[in-house]
Computed example of a mutant assay.
Amino acid sequence: MYVPSPPQSDPRAATGQPWWLVIGPGFASLIGLFLVTVIYRFDGGSALQIDLGMSSQSLLLNGLVAYLVAAAIAFPAGMLLGARFPTPVAVPAIALMLLGVLLVVFVPNTGLFLVGRVLTGLGAGAVLGVTVALIRRLQAGRGAAAGVTAGLGVVALVLAPVLGGLLSDATGFRVVFMVAALFVFAALVVAGVLGIVALVKAKTPARPMPYPPHA
């Protein structure tokens, strides 16, 4: 006698978000960490500080503290919402980063510099939260992904003053942020494209399991 097999569930429902969705937000997060310390240099005042006529205290408050406070405010929202809606959260966050970086590129004074840093910090904090949420939901390789991301983040923080200083000496601080804006735009495209791919794959119906012939 034939006994019908139990209905087969879609295996994608048990795997959570695909691992490659981390690529776009993760890349943007690394750029965000790079932008934290790129306003400084290890061997003296940065070109940004000199060109805008900022004191060390003003650079600290407007450039670093404002960035970190904005990022800390946006991070919890990015982590909570990003777990369920990674692309709808990551794409606007990266776009906000891009807007903030472009403001710094064309900034004429300290006031707009502060606005640019706040916008960049909000976007960076939110996209970092999305990255953490996606890594936490990985079914395999979670520890390796977290370790690699954290390691690259530390490298970005340390190298930013060095690379930023070298490029600023050669071309000016605005070019540094223009290059950063290009990388942020690339991260925006990657996050958007991979999000669309994930949406299409999620909407593709699973193939029905074949039933054996009746006995």
Rank of each mutant, 00 (worst) to 15 (best):
G141K: 07
L80Y: 15
A95K: 01
G116F: 08
L163F: 07
L159M: 11
A77R: 13
L68D: 14
G111L: 07
V104G: 03
A156K: 05
I39V: 07
T87Y: 01
G195L: 10
N109S: 15
G63H: 01
G44P: 09
L61F: 13
A13T: 07
A140R: 09
G45C: 10
L35A: 12
F27Q: 00
G63Q: 05
G111H: 12
A202H: 11
A47V: 12
L114V: 05
F183G: 02
P4C: 07
I23S: 00
G63C: 09
L157R: 03
G123F: 01
Y67G: 04
I196S: 04
A145V: 10
A72D: 12
G78C: 11
L134R: 01
M97P: 00
V175T: 10
A191C: 13
L48M: 11
M54I: 08
D43K: 07
L134Q: 04
I39Y: 04
F106L: 10
S58L: 05
L80H: 14
P210W: 12
A156W: 05
L98W: 05
L102F: 09
A71K: 02
G100Q: 02
A150N: 13
T204K: 14
S58W: 02
A215E: 08
G53H: 00
L68G: 10
G116Q: 05
Y2K: 07
L59Q: 00
V184D: 02
A28Q: 09
F75I: 11
F173G: 01
S29W: 13
L166E: 08
Y40H: 09
G116S: 05
P11W: 07
L166K: 11
S5T: 10
I135R: 09
F75N: 14
M209F: 10
T120E: 06
F106Y: 04
V118A: 03
A187W: 11
T149E: 15
L159P: 06
V107H: 01
K203S: 14
V148G: 01
L199V: 13
L103I: 11
L188E: 02
P76A: 08
G192P: 00
T204R: 13
A206L: 15
G100S: 11
A74E: 04
A202W: 14
G16H: 03
S5G: 07
V200W: 15
A198S: 13
A202F: 10
V200D: 07
A47I: 11
L159F: 07
P6A: 08
S5C: 01
P205F: 15
V193K: 00
L52Y: 06
W19R: 05
W20N: 02
A198L: 15
R207M: 14
I94Y: 00
M178K: 01
A145Y: 10
V179M: 02
G53Q: 00
I135C: 04
P92D: 08
T149V: 15
A28W: 15
A150Q: 11
G63S: 11
G141E: 03
F34Y: 14
M79H: 14
D51C: 03
F177W: 09
L194W: 10
